[in-house]
Amino acid sequence: MLGLIYNELLVITGRWRSYIGFIGISILMPLILWGFAYGSESLQSDYTRGFEGSFMIVGSIINTFLATYIIMNAMWIHIPFLITLAAGDSVAADGSNGIFRLTLIRPVSRLKILLSKLLASYIYSAALVIFCAFWSLGIGSLILGTGDLIVIDKGILILEESQVWIRMLLSFSLAIVVMCMVATLCFMFSSMVDNGVGPIIGAMFLIIVGYIIIAIPLDFFKKIEPYVFVSYFNIWIDAFKDPIPWLVIGKKLIVLIGYSIIFFGIAAYVFLNKDIKS
């Protein structure tokens, strides 16, 4: 199985499309960090507007942790798109390129081949999220420095620096689970068609529809919201609550993993019964 996963990673790392996400992040992050460094005063006044009458803030609250927190808030719709660029190709491209005529005639079960492709997509997804973390936390700490994190949600939460590293680790780990679910969704579509674009469109369409459903305050949409997987994408925010709502995180994880299992189950059913005609 490890050999099969290694094979898939060779294919992913050999495709230029796989680097679009990394290149995009490498261009975007320095710009954002530069923006934080030079626009910190106006950003701080915007961020603290709601409680400046109650608190006196000495010094700057802008540091790499706050920057990362804000970046994550802004990017949780964009990163899924970067994930789908690789996951969309993982099964479909092998069909359209005739690779299945080489691989599916070998003494390896289709299920193992499919699973290795999925796990390779997961590794890619995790790598992309970790790369984001490397930029925002690693390079960001060099540019913006570290310190306490002030989180404004239903109130104000001040997390000490020693706590924030742990919270960030938890938050990025939860973000990886979300992105793996996105990869599985795209993977499911990828197993159904023979081109890499269809799965990307299909997955992004469902994600955008999900965002619309949770954004519009209609009664009907509120009723179906618990069944919309996109409404669990913000699980990473729970890492910055105090105390950490483990039960809520657990429930959300069960839903996300449950959806992933269902999507993979559908992909497996389709792939195992698929006639390879191309």
Binding site: V11, G14, R15, W16, N97, G98, I99, R101, L102
Partner: peptide, 9 residues
């Protein structure tokens, strides 16, 4: 039929 491979490898 025709032989197809990962062309970028």
């Amino acid at each position: 039929e025709r032989a197809d491979f990962h062309k970028h490898l």
